[in-house]
Design a binder for these strands. Sequence first.
DNA 1: CCGTCAACATTGTTTGACGATTTCGTGTGA
DNA 2: TCACACGAAATCGTCAAACAATGTTGACGG
Lengths: 246, 246
Amino acid sequence: MATKSVSKAGSAAEPIAVSGEKRAATAADSAIDKVTDAIIQGIRSGVFVPGQHLLEPDLTRRLGISRGSLREALKHLAAAGIVTLNRYRGAYIGILGRKSVLDLLDTLEPLARLAARLAAGNCVSPADQKRMQTAANMIEAAGRGGNRAQYMEDRRHFYDTMIDLGGNRELERVIPLSRTDLFRAQVERVQSETQRQRHVSGYGKIAKAIIGQDADAADRAVKRHFDGTRKTMEELPEDAFPQEDF
Amino acid sequence: MATKSVSKAGSAAEPIAVSGEKRAATAADSAIDKVTDAIIQGIRSGVFVPGQHLLEPDLTRRLGISRGSLREALKHLAAAGIVTLNRYRGAYIGILGRKSVLDLLDTLEPLARLAARLAAGNCVSPADQKRMQTAANMIEAAGRGGNRAQYMEDRRHFYDTMIDLGGNRELERVIPLSRTDLFRAQVERVQSETQRQRHVSGYGKIAKAIIGQDADAADRAVKRHFDGTRKTMEELPEDAFPQEDF
DNA sequence: CCGTCAACATTGTTTGACGATTTCGTGTGA
DNA sequence: TCACACGAAATCGTCAAACAATGTTGACGG
């Protein structure tokens, strides 16, 4: 394992992962993939703002699909925590208050640490080491460049690489990466440059530990990374977190 | 928090959790809840066997709903990992090989330990302590009784209680409890009585540590519980794990 | 026995419709 | 002026029927 991330034949677990990391919503995708890609990309690029109301008639027109397919896709996105569904009131882009963000970090941290430990234990071949290094380089370049959508996609790619190296297929199903896109979309525009750099540099340290096949060091690097993120959260002003009223 | 598990007004996060633990698919539920309840209950009771093919025309007739609603529900269940969808080939009840089970345990363990630590830190009021004790008693009674469906439901209730006490709302979204129902459904019929008793007694020890508000002890109790489960898995014969071909 | 191809079965998607519920503007009365 | 009831519009939940795309099965010929 840990050579290619594609599964056997577009098989079972694939459509579960909400994303679609590599393919950019090409033509031959199913209708629901078109929706999920469009919405995730919309969140990353800022077209969709957390809390925004998604109207079915509007989306069906813009995406050129039927209402039934759209509703299936929204169910899918809701299960991933990207949108919330209110009966008779429609779908909203998810929104995270300060407590939700901290809860999310607490939940994500042990999973990320597990992923890092597993990746460190399996990162033996030079090819795998190169993959990990490349992922770290990409995220650092995008982090300096300032392209928000690109940065979020590279961040996700970094996690995907780490998870894939680890070889635990349940992990990729469980880790709430799509939900962190949401929280990044809220935070990215209000954090300072120092905070951003602190965050970016964390990935490089994690990659270094994984490439060195030092599971304990990787674990510690992830822990420090999350500690830093929590610190950033505490430093942010209150108005960075819209109240999650709905 | 940690007093009642119901959310404000049947609000956003509720339909995400695939379950429906307490209400038994009453009338006024939405169509998709009817499907999810029926399928989960079917898995617990043995009506649906892991790997079974779910035919849309059959299910629409048996549940008395339209195909559109059924497909939305199947998307929902697929996102939770309970069924797998193969394009143009339909939906199948999920199936877990030995590696998938071990991966699932590795993923679930750190989340369960986090939940236990949080619960221990918040289990202060006598009401909360009673809730936890009751959940442990229920699971032990069902474990001795031998009613498989009841045991699986009580096991889930135990986790739900623990998560609710902890107060981390992301945790309940992420923890793959429904998927463990699947794995329990496969394992329950082939494990020995000693193995079963070992598993049942673990919950009582976890509850005791939580009620004693000893986070470290709760963490250790969960760890031991998972170590025991892994040991059981290794002891099981190979034919307990159908090959996950599809 | 094996490969080819056609008929069948099942899923993917669209369209249209109807009832249920929420939302919002409007008018009325105090 | 403000609070509240009422009705219209908007939106969602569900269903039904149809066609297209794909997988499956079995007959046929070699």
